[in-house]
Design a protein around this nucleic acid. Structure first.
Length: 581
DNA sequence: GCCGTTTTCGGCCCGACTGTTTTCAGTCG
């Protein structure tokens, strides 16, 4: 019996487990529990986020060995592990109990940026607000601003937060959507029933945010398509929206993410694939002969998708570009740029180690980076102002440099560049004095604090940092977190112009939450001859794999390898850093 | 609830900013 249970046990991810503790801490705070108890849970969460082992695999004693995890938290983690089965995620009794006495809508309200548990509690107790809908109504009626401790601005912040939340609902980050999409594709592939199948829509265009996974399949009959999908246990059909030639539904585990599977005959497969891939703006582009792309492709038989472009007298346009924004401008050039691929990358810049808030040591990061086939690693831990991220004091910078010199001496086949992710301070200055800044091979300058700024202030602050002779790369230019937080508003053209004037590269932060610089501005940066760095911002060894999402976005922006900073070889980038100095 | 050990109980508590106050609580990174 015991054995069977252990087989059925699923392994919850660390994030899933930690989220339960974090929610518990929120709930304790909502119920006005002892603040030090709450702080203990927060501290536990903080340290659990740092560990690299699977929490679900750790014994009670191993759990207790984690800093800030004592008897009580360790037992709760153990309880979560024992309660998780193949079909249900684990929980713990105290959490279940406190959830029973908490209106569930408060958990949604807690997600709004700008208000925390204390304010949510006041709204709950004073205005009896327990749902986002009720909160929005109260804002509309100016009820929130009247509450003690609240005011006009807080009410506005809440309203904006709610609007952003509404925008974000029913949307998924690309990496999340892709994970589900690949599961579905595997089911379709394994059925061996389809001569051809392909993703279309947002997944094929690799958009940063996805609401629908679109697939095109080519089974013998439409009924076969419905039968194969009926056998798939992780998706749910929406009968009302489905038809003979289209299956519509959603993923059970993430029902925000919709699915559309279309039936195609072999003869019209590429025509349909083309029409299901590009945006309306792309498809309604008028070609030389006066017909739109839609008219050219509709109900025609093509052997390959490329033939559609030949018929339209256009060079092949990669799916990522088919947004209807600037791809036809690129296509007019004598040589349409060959878009960058992951294979073109020679190194990885902007990565963290245990010196600041990373999970793996410098050596582990370097070894793993080399194992991926890269020639170099740029290590860029946080600077001293980033207190919350264990930013490096001048002394610790020196220590890290000593270790880098040692590792470089030991391994002549790979090079670690001494970088830093220097905070851009409120006045636009970088976070170290000139003497310290001189000791780095390169500097990624990023804003992490005081994010609420006007467009003028943010632009001015960035430009000041770009003008520093030490800045090599501008990090995540807007600080946005997709579906979570809007970035500070900036004048993209002025910022990019400043980068061009000061020979500063711009990062595409490849973290699926950031993807910042937004791809819509890559095109302008290239016009201005600015280098783009595709940076994973890895905080552990697996973080290097996030690079792929940055490559997608870079391709959407039309980036080619010649203007990608980390597509330069070790020697070339050394020279690049040198000429900056 | 966790930690330390000069402590098995008492202390835990970053700093800047914002918006609300009229001296500070709440929030964030």
């Amino acid at each position: 019996m015991h054995k069977i249970k252990s087989v059925l046990q699923t392994t919850m991810t660390n994030n899933q487990i930690i989220a339960l503790l974090d929610t518990y801490a929120d709930l304790l705070e909502l119920h006005n529990e002892n603040e030090f108890k709450i702080r203990s849970y927060r501290a536990g969460v903080f340290h659990l986020e740092k560990i690299t082992q699977n929490i679900s695999q750790l014994s009670l004693n191993e759990l207790k060995a984690i800093p800030s995890v004592g008897k009580s938290i360790a037992e709760k983690l153990n309880e979560i592990n024992q309660n998780s089965t193949q079909n249900t995620l684990g929980s713990f009794l105290d959490l279940d109990n406190i959830l029973k006495i908490t209106p569930i809508g408060l958990l949604d309200i807690l997600k709004i940026k700008g208000i925390g548990t204390k304010k949510v509690r006041v709204l709950w107790k004073e205005l009896d607000i327990t749902t986002v809908e009720a909160l929005f109504e109260a804002c509309e009626n100016d009820k929130v601003a009247e509450v003690k401790g609240f005011g006009e601005k807080t009410q506005e912040t809440i309203k904006n937060g709610l609007l952003f939340m509404a925008f974000s609902s029913e949307k998924s980050l690309y990496n999340d959507a892709e994970k589900y999409a690949l599961q579905l594709e595997k089911h379709i592939r394994d059925s061996n029933f389809f001569d051809m199948h392909s993703f279309a829509g947002q997944i094929r265009r690799k958009t940063e945010i996805v609401d629908t996974v679109v697939m095109l399949v080519c089974p013998p009959t439409p009924t076969d398509m419905h039968n194969v999908l009926a056998e798939c246990d992780f998706i749910e059909k929406n009968n009302q929206k489905s038809g003979v030639f289209v299956w519509r539904g959603a993923f059970k585990e993430n029902n925000q993410l919709k699915i559309e599977v279309y039936f195609a005959n072999q003869a019209d497969f590429y025509s349909r694939l083309f029409l299901l891939t590009g945006t309306n703006e792309h498809l309604s582009h008028t070609t030389e002969n006066g017909k739109t792309l839609l008219q050219i492709a509709l109900n025609q038989t093509f052997v390959v998708e490329e033939d559609i472009f030949i018929k339209a007298n256009l060079p092949y346009i990669a799916p990522e570009l088919r947004e209807g924004l600037f791809e036809f401008e690129l296509a007019k050039k004598p040589n349409m740029p060959v878009l960058i691929t992951e294979k073109d990358l020679k190194g990885s810049l902007h990565n963290h180690s245990t010196y600041s808030d990373g999970k793996n040591t410098l050596k582990e990061m370097a070894d793993y980076c080399q194992s991926l086939g890269y020639e170099y690693l740029g290590i860029t831990d946080h600077s001293k102002a980033a207190f919350y991220a264990n930013g490096l004091s001048e002394k610790r910078v020196q220590e890290q440099h000593t270790e880098i010199d040692l590792l470089n001496a030991q391994n002549p086949h790979f090079h670690i560049f001494k970088g830093i992710e220097a905070d851009i301070l409120n006045d636009g200055k970088l976070d170290y004095d000139t003497e310290t800044l001189k000791t780095f091979d390169f500097v990624v300058a990023s804003i992490h604090s005081n994010l609420k700024m006007s467009k003028e202030k943010a632009t001015e602050r960035l430009i000041k940092a770009i003008e520093s002779p030490f800045t090599t790369i501008l990090g995540h230019p807007t600080g946005r977190l997709l579906l979570r937080r809007e970035g500070y508003p900036i004048d993209f053209h002025k910022v990019i112009d400043a980068c061009a004037a000061n020979k500063v590269a711009i990062e595409i932060n490849a973290h699926p939450l950031r993807l910042d610089l937004d791809w819509r501005y890559v095109h302008y940066a290239l016009e201005k001859d600015v280098f783009i760095a595709i940076n994973p911002d890895a905080h552990d060894i697996l973080g290097f794999h996030k690079t792929q999402f940055g490559v997608h976005i870079a391709r959407k922006g039309g980036l080619y390898k010649e203007k990608c900073l980390n597509a330069l070889s070790k020697e070339e980038i050394k020279a690049f850093f040198q000429q900056k100095k």
